[in-house]
Amino acid sequence: MLEAIRRAISFLREKQILHKLGVLISVAVIGIACYMLYHKLRNIDAAAVFRAMKETEPRLIMLSALSVAAGYFTLTFYDWFAVRTIGRRDVPYRINALAAFTSYSIGHNVGASVFTGGAVRYRIYSAWDLSAVDVAKIVFLAGLTFWLGNLAVLGMGIAYHPEAASAINQVPPWMNRILAYIILAGLVGYVVWVWMKPRSVGRGPWSVVLPGGPLTLLQIAIGIIDLGFCALAMYMLVPAEPDVGFVVVAVVFVSATLLGFASHSPGGLGVFDAAMLVGLEMMDQEQLLAGMLLFRVLYYLAPFFISVMLLTLRELIIGSRSKKLQAVAADAKPGVGHPLKEHGRSGA
């Protein structure tokens, strides 16, 4: 059975069917989202949206900001877990935290987070002698943590309140509940599968040993906590009336996040917003849109600017150290061209 699945995937890759299918899905998701967003926004009063933003309680904005900070702190353990899983326990947590925070915050805003985030990670981890293959493994394992957490939250949330998902996918609640049970059964099956014996994916130097059962449970816990804080940040900013409860907002939020991720648009722009407006259409749309805009400032824009400043400061420090090393080498060997300059290397 597994061999047949591997052969099918290999065939699809050779024919680039998976790539074409992915592009088709992205275009379809963006197209549907644009259509829904147009119909949702055409009657929106922009002045009312900005007025709602100004009237949002500073206490709620602060609590949302703290939830975002807690979410990004939890997110740093994606890299911490992945780096230790590939056997590089010598890389300190502060480097994991810098790589995770900057790669995710920049990837969220630029789009194509696998590539943009991977490039940022490589720039940071290469200073610790991690190769491009090592970074690719880190990206894969961090992504696995993300998806395991998403599926766990989505499965439990839909099983508890299937009507929340029905508002987005227009599928009957009983069918969504069955889908939730299938998702949870798949998660349990995966945990059992990796618990039975060591498992790996990929071939040759690209082979990645999957975390075993106990570590997979830790992965799921990290993902759940991260998403829980993000959903809480959104919950703080949505209208208080009607009080739909945290679970409903969390299910809609995670569903919207996954749709935005599938679209590959920067920050799920348009797709995330349309899904939120459709999923929470029982709320005042101007107030909901105001909360979503504040959430984007807190979760996307603020971390992005902080990341750019951190990376710029890091490059300035590296450049300064490189110049000092070049000066020391030049003083030690007067009259001889510096080898770093001869080969065009920066020393970063």
Rank of each mutant, 00 (worst) to 15 (best):
T56D: 02
I86C: 09
G223A: 06
L148G: 07
L340G: 15
I222D: 01
S113D: 09
G279Y: 05
L269V: 14
A233W: 10
A329F: 07
G155A: 11
V68N: 01
Y35W: 14
D273W: 03
A127F: 10
I225P: 05
G117N: 05
Y300I: 14
S166V: 01
Y104F: 10
H338M: 04
S307R: 04
S263H: 03
E342W: 10
A99M: 00
Y125L: 06
P214E: 00
G267P: 03
S166F: 06
L310T: 14
R7W: 12
A99P: 01
R6C: 08
L24K: 08
L294P: 05
F140E: 02
A165P: 00
V29A: 05
E55H: 06
A99K: 08
Y125H: 01
R321V: 15
V120H: 07
E286K: 07
T102L: 02
L316A: 15
D243Y: 10
L258I: 15
F50Y: 12
I182E: 02
L187P: 00
P162R: 06
Y235W: 15
V49I: 14
L259S: 12
G22T: 05
M282G: 08
G212Y: 02
I44C: 05
G212V: 09
A8V: 06
L37W: 08
S113Q: 06
S131L: 03
H108L: 13
A82C: 06
V27R: 05
A167K: 12
V308G: 01
V308K: 12
M156A: 15
E241K: 15
W128P: 01
F295K: 08
G347P: 09
A97L: 11
L187Y: 03
V249T: 13
E315H: 14
Y300Q: 13
M236R: 13
L288K: 07
V27E: 04
A132L: 14
L66P: 01
I86E: 04
I25H: 07
A330N: 11
V244F: 07
E281V: 07
Y122Q: 12
P303Y: 05
L144T: 05
L311C: 10
M236Q: 12
M292P: 00
M234P: 00
V29G: 03
V248W: 14
D273Y: 05
N96A: 11
L63Y: 06
L37P: 03
F50K: 08
A127Y: 11
L218R: 12
W195G: 06
A262F: 06
L259C: 09
N109D: 09
G335M: 13
M276Y: 07
P162C: 06
I220M: 10
V120L: 03
L313A: 14
A99E: 02
L130F: 04
H161V: 14
G223F: 08
